[in-house]
Amino acid sequence: MTPAIVFLEKQKAAFTLHQYDCTAQDDFGAHAAEQLGVPPERVFKTLLTEGEQGAVVALVPSSGKVNLKRLAKAAGVKKLEMMPPQKAERLTGFKVGGISPFAQKKRLVTVLDASAQEHDTVLVSGGKRGLSVGISAAEIARLLNAACAPIAE
């Protein structure tokens, strides 16, 4: 059981678990979509960014990428850049390819791409490679106090 799953259970969140065999070395979201047989726009990747005001988590579909200007605006900061993978691992406590938005070492500002609202549930990392969580956009927003904005392109 990962810290993310423990967190979701403690919060009595409505979610489903989806396990798959992860053999990818990069583009983990697209790999998860393929392995689980779901459209890539329903599998959201957890990306970490940083700026002068600190770190911001972006949740965007694996079929796209984050627009850093739109993310900064949604987070109420001036400028953001992608965080190096090793720093993201240290900050969250999860390995790249398995970084969950839930139960990170420190609660960070989180922005969910508005497209998540187009689906009953989206898949996000469950805290390790090969484990995804099916959860609604509303539940993500509630659990993480996440903003919802059009941040993907």
Rank of each mutant, 00 (worst) to 15 (best):
T2W: 08
A4F: 06
A4T: 08
L8T: 01
L8H: 09
E9Y: 10
K10I: 08
Q11G: 05
Q11S: 15
A13C: 05
A14E: 15
F15R: 00
F15C: 07
T16H: 05
H18T: 03
Q19L: 14
Y20P: 02
D21G: 10
Q25R: 12
D26V: 05
D26E: 11
D27V: 03
H31Q: 11
A33R: 01
E34K: 09
Q35M: 14
Q35D: 06
L36V: 10
G37R: 07
G37E: 12
G37K: 10
V38G: 04
P39I: 11
P39A: 12
P40R: 04
P40S: 11
P40T: 04
R42C: 12
R42E: 14
R42M: 14
K45M: 09
L47C: 01
T49W: 02
E50A: 13
G51I: 01
G51A: 12
Q53H: 15
V56Y: 07
V57E: 02
L59E: 05
V60M: 01
V60C: 01
P61Y: 04
S62G: 09
S62C: 13
V66G: 00
N67W: 09
N67F: 09
L68G: 03
R70Q: 14
A72W: 04
K73S: 13
A74V: 11
V77T: 13
V77A: 08
V77S: 08
K79F: 11
K79C: 11
E81M: 11
M82P: 00
M83Y: 09
P84S: 12
P85Y: 12
P85I: 10
Q86C: 09
K87S: 14
A88Q: 06
G93I: 06
G93P: 01
V96C: 13
G98K: 06
I99P: 00
P101Q: 09
Q104N: 13
Q104W: 05
K105L: 15
R107I: 11
R107H: 14
V109W: 02
T110A: 08
V111E: 02
L112K: 04
L112F: 09
A114N: 05
A114L: 14
S115A: 14
S115V: 04
A116P: 00
Q117K: 13
E118Q: 14
E118S: 15
E118V: 02
H119R: 06
H119T: 02
D120F: 08
T121P: 00
L123E: 02
V124W: 02
V124F: 06
G126L: 05
G126R: 00
G127T: 05
R129H: 06
L131R: 02
L131A: 04
S132D: 15
V133K: 00
G134L: 02
I135Q: 02
A137H: 03
A138Y: 04
A138M: 07
E139T: 03
L143V: 03
L144M: 11
N145Y: 12
N145I: 05
N145E: 15
A147V: 13
C148H: 03
C148V: 15
A149L: 07
I151W: 00
A152H: 04
A152D: 07
E153R: 12
E153S: 14
